[in-house]
Amino acid sequence: MNREIWSKRNFTNKSPVDYNCPKCNIGILNITNLNSKIIPGQDEMEMNNYPNGIDYVFSGILVCKNSNCKNVLSIIGNVLKDIHNGYQLPNGEYVEEYLSVYYPKYFFPPLKIIEISQKVPKEVAQQLNLSFSHFYNDLSSCANRIRNSIELILDDLKAPKKYKDSKTNKLKAFRTLHHRIENYEKKTKNKKITNLLFAIKIIGNEGSHIGNIALEDVLDAYEFLEPILDFVYDKKEKNIHIKASEIVLKNKPMSKH
């Protein structure tokens, strides 16, 4: 996962972001045909050349530059146009320019924050794609969808959903996702994978509190998810367990440490 790209929440007409094509995963998307319309109430600012930008909504088309792909996506969001920016060159010359800053809200089909192998089951891939679709517009919903995906992954790991109550000798459903992961850890002794699962669960829970989730925490969750997907579906592991251990130890996302 390229954290640098996904940490950028906007782009300008001077420096567009090199988004990867979600279809071929190798081509860069060329942003074309950006159309915008001023938001009602901004007309007076436009007439007075407001220097800090004027609110518009925009839509556009993105086309994959890979000649063997040429995938097409749509994009919508908000844009601040005519932002006045002045700077001085090394030779002392002062340059003035006007920028447009674009804030994407939705991509369709959604961009893929992490790659999803063909081996990943449809139900898990669906939750991940839904998380991608929320990434630019609602980080809380994004985090919750990631959390949903690990519940399905636990199913594929054959992690029990129930336990035998010692008092009644009857099977009872685990009360929380935490208890289910805990039980899986006791049975498998796979501390590395369960640490990652616990970390994602903690971040997902944070997403349930409106406005509390931070972008870097969501990116952590995606980063932790990659080795889990490799382990469960591609039978590989990656060395990203230290950060997960810290989150589990302190029982809070990294941004809250």
Rank of each mutant, 00 (worst) to 15 (best):
residue 46 E to H: 04
residue 74 S to V: 11
residue 32 T to L: 14
residue 41 G to T: 01
residue 94 Y to I: 14
residue 145 R to L: 09
residue 4 E to A: 11
residue 40 P to Q: 06
residue 242 I to K: 12
residue 25 N to A: 12
residue 146 I to K: 01
residue 205 N to T: 07
residue 144 N to P: 05
residue 189 K to H: 14
residue 39 I to A: 07
residue 189 K to M: 13
residue 5 I to Y: 07
residue 195 N to Q: 07
residue 49 N to R: 11
residue 175 R to Q: 08
residue 162 K to Q: 09
residue 83 I to K: 08
residue 26 I to E: 15
residue 242 I to W: 07
residue 14 K to F: 15
residue 167 K to Q: 09
residue 145 R to F: 13
residue 150 I to E: 01
residue 136 Y to A: 03
residue 206 E to V: 03
residue 166 S to P: 15
residue 31 I to D: 07
residue 213 I to Q: 00
residue 76 I to W: 01
residue 235 K to A: 12
residue 118 Q to M: 10
residue 70 K to Y: 06
residue 234 D to W: 01
residue 167 K to I: 09
residue 102 Y to W: 01
residue 8 K to S: 08
residue 57 V to W: 15
residue 202 I to K: 03
residue 42 Q to I: 04
residue 203 I to H: 04
residue 141 S to E: 02
residue 37 K to T: 14
residue 196 L to K: 02
residue 107 F to N: 05
residue 166 S to H: 10
residue 107 F to C: 03
residue 26 I to Y: 15
residue 49 N to V: 05
residue 204 G to L: 04
residue 234 D to Q: 12
residue 56 Y to W: 06
residue 19 Y to K: 08
residue 153 I to Q: 00
residue 66 N to S: 09
residue 56 Y to N: 06
residue 70 K to F: 05
residue 33 N to F: 09
residue 124 V to C: 08
residue 141 S to G: 11
residue 31 I to Y: 02
residue 190 N to A: 13
residue 216 E to P: 04
residue 139 L to V: 00
residue 205 N to Y: 06
residue 212 N to E: 13
residue 220 D to H: 08
residue 182 E to T: 10
residue 105 K to F: 06
residue 146 I to W: 03
residue 180 R to F: 03
residue 13 N to T: 09
residue 253 P to F: 00
residue 234 D to A: 14
residue 9 R to H: 05
residue 170 K to L: 10
residue 246 E to F: 15
residue 90 P to Y: 03
residue 125 A to M: 10
residue 22 P to M: 02
residue 112 K to M: 11
residue 166 S to K: 13
residue 116 I to P: 06
residue 78 N to G: 09
residue 50 Y to P: 01
residue 210 I to V: 12
residue 51 P to F: 05
residue 12 T to K: 08
residue 21 C to E: 04
residue 226 E to W: 05
residue 38 I to L: 08
residue 80 L to C: 04
